[in-house]
Amino acid sequence: MNSNALRQKAVQIRMDLLRIIHRAKTGHTGGSLSNTDILTSLYYRVMRIDPSNPKLPDRDRFIASKGHSVESLWCILADLGFFPKEELFTYSQFGTRLIGHPNNKVPGIEMNTGALGHGLAISVGMALASKRDGLGYRVFCLMGDGEQAEGSVWEAAMAGAHYKLDNLVGIVDRNRLQISGSTEEVMGLDPLDEKWASFGWHVVTVDGNDVDALVSAFEAVPAASGKPTLVMANTVKGKGVSFAENVPHWHHHVPSDEELDRALAELSAALESLRQEGEKG
């Protein structure tokens, strides 16, 4: 996909995730909206994956360490054909596979995740296995910024640098909000980029809602031989829905009927604008 097609796809995914959250009456809306451009860039442009063969031995791996923001991931996997798209509307219903965190009974999900602080350690093991087995796959791990307060993140960071895992990419969805407020008020993180660099990682800071910047960062891996890469993706929580952007309340707010209609109208207008831009070439 070119950049315009990626931007269009991200808008469509945002519309889908809002619909399934509204229908289920549960979900983590703000974080799923903020991470959509990251996931869209990875799944539609960067990662080596095959929905018809989800266990391909040399596939790239994605670990959603911030597993509570799973709705965007479910919508992307359905759109790509890992499972039927109509199954999306069973999200968080009784007996569904599509629960509120990644579930590895679903094709395309590598590990059950969501207990914050665990995903990077899992990813370090996978990246090390790739090196030792000579398979050459890359491992991408998406973390929340509130998650950076977990000590296990930094143990994994040390291990990733120690084993020189230049096939490992950590991504921080740096939207600066967590369930209880601003990350800097709950547990100050800055200068977060310098902390990661001091642990031996190659750090790239990008606009995490700019698909071109994200693709450039991801496609450059390995950006520094013998070093894992940390992409500091500065995002807007609630991105794409004007009245949800940077509003802490939307961390797990379920849109009302009226809010859903307003949000879909905004996103439909954005999609039409992108389509017109694409036609102009």
Rank of each mutant, 00 (worst) to 15 (best):
A10H: 00
V11P: 05
M15L: 09
R19A: 13
I21S: 05
R23Q: 15
T26C: 13
G31P: 05
N35F: 03
L42V: 04
V46R: 00
K55Y: 11
P57A: 15
I63H: 02
S65N: 12
H68P: 11
E71H: 04
S72Y: 03
F82N: 00
F83H: 01
E87G: 02
Y91A: 05
Q93G: 13
Q93M: 11
F94G: 05
R97H: 13
I99Q: 14
P102M: 06
N103M: 07
K105F: 10
G114R: 04
A115D: 12
G117E: 13
G119Q: 08
A121W: 04
S123H: 06
V124Y: 11
A127T: 12
A127W: 01
D133W: 07
C141G: 05
A149T: 13
G160V: 06
L165S: 01
N167A: 09
V169M: 11
I171Q: 00
R174N: 10
L177R: 00
G200L: 07
T205I: 01
A213N: 02
A217Y: 00
P222F: 05
S225I: 06
V231H: 00
K237W: 02
G240L: 09
G240C: 09
V241F: 07
V247S: 08
V254Q: 05
V254Y: 06
P255E: 11
E258M: 07
L267F: 09
